[in-house]
Design a protein around this nucleic acid. Structure first.
Lengths: 226, 226
DNA sequence: GGTCTTGTTGTACGAACGTTCAACAAGACC
DNA sequence: GGTCTTGTTGAACGTTCGTACAACAAGACC
């Protein structure tokens, strides 16, 4: 502590004054920083890297800060789930609802196609994103709090997808079990994500998207052309 | 240690002699016991329960035994993968190969249908089995040794499935991309397993099997009837 | 009964874990 | 410059982790 330090540009007049040892942040800002650092740890090293030490080092803060801003490490994990997965899926749901409401701009086929494509867009279908999902899946099966959040989220997504499917099938007079098809489609997407995550050479994002469309088109007819 | 103990029936003549404190097992027998105990830990508590203490307690042996019979805890994890997943999938592959060889008893349709059904039979489609997969998936993405074993296994399974698909499609003069269909089918199965594992109310084994058949039948025609 | 092999035990060890909390200091306010 | 609020630090704690290893004993053999 007697050294001059490595970032002395901040000191203004008194030559004796050492630069600040840390910067204060608003509580919610710091929380976000910690959640992002924790997410990064998860995407790199899986659930085994989700520890106080590594997250704080990744965030560049001291060890005590997580328990100051979150009830526990487990609480932070739930927040990571909410901010990283919950938020992105809910975003997809909201956009789908908006499209379905704007019936003039978005015919049912285009709305459903857009929802399908969003699943395979680089925003979601990325390796780092998938590692987060994979890590959390293993925890959801064991952690009741995560399990509750997961079920709520997937129920909502399945319901929205089923509505989009029905909106296409009904005008075409097709007999389709929309809820089941929605569930099977989500399973296929998750499965393809999984395959890609464990072995990139097996499937490309393009092939995965094609597989998704094929499953739906087998029941409701063409979605991509026209 | 001065107590009489709870299982004194073993002592034969000398009333002073205390019963054996442990029983010796052949190395491979003890290894199997440890692998099974480790698998049980995994299926109950996920990867977080995969520790020396818990596995040894589950197996009813002392803490030192794992490092005596395995190079490390990580080595035991690889053995769990091989014995629990590798073995069961390889078993499916072997049976499929056998069926395909016995062309007189097993027409291609029946052979493929049997392979599909085996994926959803209670032997594999059980909650404890799925938790093991789920736990290991999260590790495969991070552990190079597991990753290598996984790719080899899945490549073999995909290849076998593609051959079974082609054996049905070719006589029917159907243009089918068998490798891609095999990959998509496996993705669907894994995805349905995942959904069921995280929320049992979403899908039943019967519905999952139906979804698997539907995907294949959309491309190669009927498999189940006749 | 004595000896030998080797599977098994249980302690010891250092590292890493999550949590707690008294002390500290950055930055706003006066 | 002084005061106050509160975000932040870092040491300390007890626990659990994986590994190593000397001591032990079960069971085969003679």
């Amino acid at each position: 502590m007697t050294e001059a330090g490595s970032a002395p540009e901040k000191r203004k007049r008194g030559a004796k004054k050492s630069p600040p040892r840390f910067s204060r942040e608003q509580a919610d800002v710091r929380r976000s920083m910690l959640i992002e650092a924790a997410t990064r740890c998860l995407s790199v090293g899986g659930i085994g890297a989700f520890t106080i030490d590594r997250i704080c080092r990744e965030a560049g803060v001291s060890r005590g800060l997580i328990n100051h801003h979150f009830e526990s490490l487990d609480g932070l994990l739930v927040e990571v789930y909410k901010s990283s997965l919950y938020a992105s899926v809910n975003n997809q749901i909201a956009e789908a609802k908006r499209r379905r409401a704007e019936a003039s701009d978005w015919p049912p086929e285009a709305s459903l196609a857009a929802l399908v494509r969003s699943n395979f867009s680089p925003d979601y279908f990325s390796r780092e994103n998938l590692l987060i999902w994979l890590s959390l899946w293993g925890e959801i099966a064991v952690n009741p709090r995560l399990q509750a959040a997961h079920r709520e989220l997937y129920d909502a997504y399945r319901a929205e997808l089923a509505e989009d499917i029905a909106a296409v099938a009904i005008p075409r007079l097709r007999q389709v079990d929309a809820p089941s098809l929605a569930r099977n489609f989500i399973a296929l997407v998750d499965g393809l994500w999984l395959e890609w995550c464990l072995d990139e050479s097996v499937v490309t994002p393009q092939a995965a998207e094609a597989a998704g469309f094929e499953m739906l088109e087998a029941q409701v007819g063409p979605l991509r052309d026209g």
